[in-house]
Design a protein around this nucleic acid. Sequence first.
DNA 1: CAAAAATGAATGAGTATTCATTCAAATTAT
DNA 2: ATAATTTGAATGAATACTCATTCATTTTTG
Lengths: 222, 222
Amino acid sequence: MSIHSNYGIICSLMIAATATARRTASREKRRHQLIDATMKCIARKGMGSTTLGDVAREAGLSQGIVNLHFESKDNLLKETLASLANEYREQFDKTLHRSGPRPADKLLALLELDFRPSICDRRKLAVWFAFWGEVKSRPTYRRMCDESDRYYDSVIEGLCAELIAEGKYKNIDAMTAADALSSMTNGLWQACLISPQTWDRRKATNAVMSYLRSVFPRHYKQ
Amino acid sequence: MSIHSNYGIICSLMIAATATARRTASREKRRHQLIDATMKCIARKGMGSTTLGDVAREAGLSQGIVNLHFESKDNLLKETLASLANEYREQFDKTLHRSGPRPADKLLALLELDFRPSICDRRKLAVWFAFWGEVKSRPTYRRMCDESDRYYDSVIEGLCAELIAEGKYKNIDAMTAADALSSMTNGLWQACLISPQTWDRRKATNAVMSYLRSVFPRHYKQ
DNA sequence: CAAAAATGAATGAGTATTCATTCAAATTAT
DNA sequence: ATAATTTGAATGAATACTCATTCATTTTTG
């Protein structure tokens, strides 16, 4: 995303400035460009009907370009999922480390992150769901998603455990609370994807907050 | 493959069932059979790689059979989603009307329904997610899912409203509670699909119950 | 110039759809 | 009842088309 908009800007600047647009880009740039095009195509046409021709056209490049940089369509898709997952993880970790210092603030920041425009965006959600829809038949996708999920769950669970200790909450254990929060996020993304007229980021945030308030009332007031 | 092996299979099924071997079945029976085969194929191979040949083979019938009964692959998929949605709705309505009489019992029954084996089954979840994964690019799928969701949400919200009135709960409104519950269910299905080793139906039910207990403590004890 | 990057036409495997034909079952006639 | 006729479900080979992949050629870079 940022990479791509930057790329576009840089390109136009170069064209304007030097009148010699680079026709060849570094390997990493091209790969990002192609992955970005792939996501756009998946969001617009669906994973099953996205062809390598579509991706190349979306990227403004030629037919054979994907095989040149990714060897196969299968590989392109795997790398696309990896890129999507990486991007989320970077934001997650950045949020985790920059927020705080209290666990209540960290937890809140992480949950709010999930409904920030850069993440809770229908185009991007469509891509996530496209991959989740293939999870049963593609063990690799499942493994990749599972691995990330476990990491996030463990962080959330740790934060919940701290809140429970701090607030001396009874009747709730950290794992259950973390499970509920993580699954609520996923379910709310689904709602944003399927019912955009009924759901928006604010409403989704509300639903999560209501859970936080009722389970950790001493940390999240009102 | 040949007429004879198909004939043999169908014969034995029919003989067992009706004692009258038939090579031809009623239109509705065949359609159901084909939809069932479609779901099996989607769960096993994914939506994108499921071919009409796969479906026909899975059903033990011949190549052209799907177009004969459904005109097109597109139509077969739409009808498959419709069938899946219908099946859920029937169970939902049955549960709604048979449980009770108190709203707390009805709500609990509806939430437990979502994690009963017949519904929270990885094969079936895979099919749901396959369709959700195409929602952005297929307006029809989106509309179908959206329509159902609204109905379920409205029922759940009604029940929450009754609980809130009965229990004089403050700090929670029916819509927020219903939103949280519905989205949690969807998120938990995702967890069951992606992390079957970590998640099972019992754990998922737990997560939902924890929310119920913390939001409606006077109705769901302990 | 050599190496790397990119092109885009050609290939061929695969697949949705069509349709002439077969055949079991139901209907009608004898 | 038996035979003749009609029906329409089912088949599966043939068709037309799409698309991933390859590669000879061209363009760009250093």
